[in-house]
Amino acid sequence: MSIDIDTARRVASLARIRVEEDALPELAQDFNAVLGFIEQLTEVDVEGVEPMTSVTPQRLKRRVDEVTDGNQQAKILKNAPDAREGFFAVPKVVE
């Protein structure tokens, strides 16, 4: 499997990372180096093996479904790059 420039462009866009056109060939090359390494996994016989979901066999704990937290608007907004009137502010998303 070899990654071409179009695939590199598509992956960068899916990952929401801006990669300029002239940087795409090097990125594709990076991907190919790592994927070439990962490719070894195809040698392993995984017939009938369950994919791991949890490394330690444990049931996730349950708790009562109730409000235990909240009313921390100021703290939540404290680190925001742009907070206005109690909200996170972002560029216009609706025309």
């Binding site: 992956v11 990962i38 996994l41 195809t42 995984v46 369950e50 994919p51 791991m52 490394v55």
Partner: peptide, 20 residues
């Protein structure tokens, strides 16, 4: 990439089986 449509089984699920 390894989680994207079409590659999830070939990469991610296979890796989780190898992890087992």
């Amino acid at each position: 990439y390894v989680l994207s449509a079409g590659f999830y089984d070939a990469y991610y699920n296979r890796a989780r089986k190898v992890r087992t």
